[in-house]
Measured scan of single mutants.
Amino acid sequence: VAMCDYCKLQKIIKETVRFSGVDKPFCSEVCKFLSA
């Protein structure tokens, strides 16, 4: 469980994407796409 980078809620992380050398955790595909 970690904080989703988009919705800022403590959730089970399903996706982690690396932006500019920094790992960004996301709880769902939706949050990942909305943050892009």
Rank of each mutant, 00 (worst) to 15 (best):
R18Q: 10
R18W: 04
D5E: 08
V22D: 14
V17K: 09
L34H: 11
A2H: 03
E15M: 15
G21F: 07
K11S: 04
R18Y: 04
A36D: 15
I13W: 02
S28C: 04
Y6M: 02
F19D: 15
S20G: 13
F19M: 15
I13P: 13
K32P: 01
P25W: 09
V1H: 01
T16K: 11
L34S: 10
K8A: 01
C27K: 02
I12C: 15
S28E: 02
V30E: 14
V17D: 06
K32Q: 08
V22T: 10
Y6K: 04
E29Y: 06
P25K: 14
A2M: 13
V1E: 09
I12N: 12
K11G: 08
D23S: 07
V1W: 04
K32T: 10
C31R: 00
T16G: 08
V30H: 10
C4T: 05
E15S: 05
C31T: 00
I12S: 12
F26M: 12
P25Q: 13
I13H: 12
C27T: 00
E15D: 10
K14G: 07
V17R: 04
E29L: 00
G21A: 04
Q10G: 07
V17G: 11
K14C: 02
F26L: 06
V1G: 07
V17F: 03
C4Y: 07
F26W: 02
A36N: 06
K8M: 02
K24V: 14
K8Y: 04
C4E: 02
T16D: 15
C7L: 00
V22I: 13
L9Q: 14
C31G: 02
P25S: 11
D23E: 11
Q10S: 08
F33M: 15
K24T: 07
C4A: 04
R18L: 06
L9A: 12
I13C: 03
S20P: 05
L34F: 15
C4V: 06
C27S: 03
T16V: 10
Y6E: 00
K14E: 04
K24P: 02
S28K: 02
K8L: 01
Q10R: 11
F19I: 15
S28Y: 02
D5V: 03
V17W: 05
V22P: 06
E29N: 14
E15V: 09
C31Y: 10
K8S: 04
S35N: 04
S28V: 00
I12E: 15
Y6W: 06
C27F: 00
K8H: 04
F26P: 08
A2C: 01
S35K: 12
K14S: 05
Y6P: 01
S35T: 00
K24H: 09
C4P: 06
D5A: 10
F33T: 15
K32E: 05
P25D: 02
C7P: 01
G21W: 04
F33N: 14
V30Y: 15
F33V: 12
E15A: 08
M3V: 08
L34I: 10
Q10F: 15
F19H: 08
M3H: 05
M3R: 09
Y6V: 02
E29G: 06
S20L: 07
K24L: 00
V22F: 04
I12A: 15
S28T: 03
D23L: 09
S20R: 10
F33H: 09
C7D: 01
